[in-house]
Write a protein that binds this DNA or RNA. Structure first.
Lengths: 182, 182, 182, 182
DNA sequence: AATGAATGAGTCTTCATTCAT
DNA sequence: AATGAATGAAGACTCATTCAT
């Protein structure tokens, strides 16, 4: 990629990130372009649509999540690994908007996102398989379910106030809920 | 209210309900008015904003939920009552869009909605208090949490496919998750 | 229709007509709205799309064409009537842009346009039928053909210069061409 | 021209031709460049504008038309030659979009196009002159008229359906129309 | 009480053309 | 000679809300 193109791309991402940080998750291409000091066409060239932009914005954060998942998957104690993973993941998706938008999307704009999803799911599956054998979790859970429940719990935290207090509580509900019913 | 006003209001609600049923949850006042055969102004007169319309649309369904909650609250076995309530509630909120939009809202447009929320929360609180005393649930749970978790689990079910299969599974996770950690 | 609505509609048509007269047949809704001193939405309300606006602009001219066709159809001499009709029609469609756009369109935006087309075709068919019986025209011609050939000849006149001189010439070609081959 | 430049030019033409063949006559430089695997700048270098590209695309087809016209001009029977020419020409211009765009253009981007037009007109003039002397055609027709009428008839065929059926019919109208009025 | 026309800012998206690399 | 990123004006269209009728 040409140096100026890379610079523009970075500027756009920077501005978009700032927009997100202000709580505005509309990601409007025109205003991002204006604020970034580039033409709209440039934004469209780099990111053909909102989803592509969102994925680019989240790529780094998603990668950190995947890495943590892989690290957790190496835990000898599968259940402990799963807990570690979910605790990290919940904090991570709550640490700014947008990441669940990627995790929940039925289809991806960028192949690298799909690859990360695959890696993420693989790490979860690894933990689930071992935890399941140890009868530490419900027998019918798959990686997809964990991802969806994670997004669901995030939703429960975001809806309403007192985020800090409820994060830990709802995480506890999730972790306990994954275990086999008594 | 004049008879024709009541008729118009009913028509608007009817059309809006049909729109929702088609999967279109945008509730656009202009198109509802057109389909209902009234002017937009009439829709605005009856429902000053989207939230007011939504609450009106959901009033009946919400009332059924409240009644079920009250019935469940009468269960001698508090935990069983809570389970009964949540199973019903989850199926109920999934049975069409819109109800969680009311349950989640930080503030209500109509006092009757607030009243129903109060009734709902009271029923839940009643169950929680007794279940807590029996050490059948986590000690730190309040009605508000149950509502939020319900919405979160609904979110997890809606995101992704195979709704029927996952409803039961995620409900199981929720119910087990509410119990005290082992 | 409300008085102010009618006024706005008339203004829009007036401006659009002026635009056409300047040789600009793009009929851009934004600029028409601006020039007419109304909001774009108003233009869209009256004319859902370009074709609808075009038809409205041409309605009067089209109606005059239809009337002339009907008058011509009353001519005892069918061939003479056809000639009269085509001479008038060619001059008419050349007297400003847009009318062939309506005549050529495969489908209409407004039912009144379709009705006029039906009337127009009926008049032509009436003449064709009688002229055919008198063996004054080719046996295989239908009203649709006459319409298309009219548009084709108009095209030939418009392409290139010296409109006045060529109109009569190409009209002669058309009229003679409709007669049965020798 | 450098070998790679020639190769690029050929690629661009090839792609543009394929685009035309799909029925898309917009000839957008960016997409042609992308599909041809070259930069837009390269397309602009070879073809400064749409008209230049169109003429280059049509050069071969136009040349075939000119050759046929010249062959027809050699016919001893001038009227027969004219008919042969027009029958061929109509089929030819209908056999894909673009050629009338060149024939109709008031000015040419490439001198070779102008040269071909001259040749074409010369052949037609030759036929017209002889046919006129034999009183087989209208006395006031020039090559330019024949070209314009050809485009007009093509227009009549393209507008509307059933191309095959109407081609022969409208050709008949044209041929008969060129003859002197009875 | 009802109407529904009007508003017009706002958003998306395209594409011809240039020019720095 | 080639590249292709960037431009940004331009145009299409929507929709929440108001207010004159």
């Amino acid at each position: 990629m040409r140096a100026d193109a890379a610079r523009n791309r970075a500027r756009v991402l920077q501005i978009a990130r700032e927009q997100l940080a202000t709580g505005d998750d509309s990601l409007m291409f025109n205003s991002i372009a204006r604020l970034a000091g580039v033409g709209v066409g440039t934004v469209y060239r780099h990111f053909p649509n909102r989803q592509a932009l969102l994925e680019a914005l989240m790529a780094e954060r998603f990668q950190r999540l995947v890495s943590e998942a892989q690290a957790a998957a190496a835990d000898e104690d599968a259940l402990a690994g799963l807990h570690r993973l979910l605790r990290y993941a919940l904090g991570h998706v709550l640490d700014g908007p947008g990441l669940t938008g990627v995790l929940e999307a039925a289809s991806d704009a960028d192949a690298r996102t799909s690859a990360m999803k695959t890696d993420f799911d693989r790490a979860i599956t690894e933990l689930l398989d071992r935890a399941r054998q140890a009868e530490a979790i419900r027998p019918d859970l798959e990686a997809d379910d964990v991802r969806r429940l994670l997004c669901g719990i995030e939703h429960a935290v975001r809806v309403g106030e007192d985020r800090a207090r409820h994060t830990e509580l709802y995480l506890g509900v999730l972790l306990e809920g994954l275990r086999p019913p008594r």
